[in-house]
Computed example of a mutant assay.
Amino acid sequence: MQVVHQSRPVVPRDRLIRLPDVEGATGCKKSTIYELMKAGRFPKPVRLSARHVAWPESAVLQWVQDRIKEAQQ
């Protein structure tokens, strides 16, 4: 007997993190984060509502890893 499974595409899981978590992950304060975003050197947030934004955790963690790699070169 052969079992047939329907294949679904794998969707990577990510979560949105708010500013305090971004500060904790990067070691940067709000003003530095927004300054880096303005210069195009930090990921842009996702707008959740008129007054709330959050960052994809994967983008923030990738930014951290990129800084570590730069420091090791």
Rank of each mutant, 00 (worst) to 15 (best):
19 L>T: 04
48 L>Y: 09
26 T>V: 05
47 R>G: 05
12 P>T: 15
9 P>M: 12
17 I>W: 04
53 V>F: 03
20 P>F: 02
49 S>A: 06
20 P>D: 03
56 P>T: 03
73 Q>L: 14
12 P>H: 14
29 K>C: 11
7 S>W: 10
62 Q>V: 01
56 P>A: 09
53 V>D: 07
32 T>G: 02
17 I>M: 07
21 D>S: 14
8 R>C: 15
45 P>W: 03
4 V>D: 09
71 A>L: 06
63 W>D: 01
41 R>P: 01
60 V>Y: 06
61 L>T: 00
56 P>H: 06
8 R>H: 15
73 Q>D: 01
1 M>L: 08
22 V>R: 03
71 A>N: 07
41 R>S: 02
5 H>M: 11
72 Q>Y: 05
32 T>M: 13
33 I>A: 03
49 S>V: 01
7 S>D: 11
62 Q>G: 04
43 P>D: 00
39 A>W: 12
5 H>K: 11
3 V>Y: 12
55 W>K: 10
69 K>Q: 06
49 S>C: 00
36 L>S: 06
43 P>I: 08
42 F>K: 05
61 L>M: 08
54 A>V: 00
7 S>R: 06
57 E>I: 12
15 R>A: 12
59 A>R: 10
28 C>M: 12
38 K>D: 13
44 K>W: 09
13 R>W: 03
46 V>K: 03
48 L>C: 11
56 P>D: 10
34 Y>W: 14
73 Q>H: 02
33 I>T: 05
29 K>I: 15
2 Q>H: 03
41 R>T: 09
15 R>H: 11
7 S>H: 06
47 R>C: 06
50 A>D: 08
21 D>P: 13
53 V>S: 13
63 W>T: 00
36 L>Q: 05
49 S>M: 09
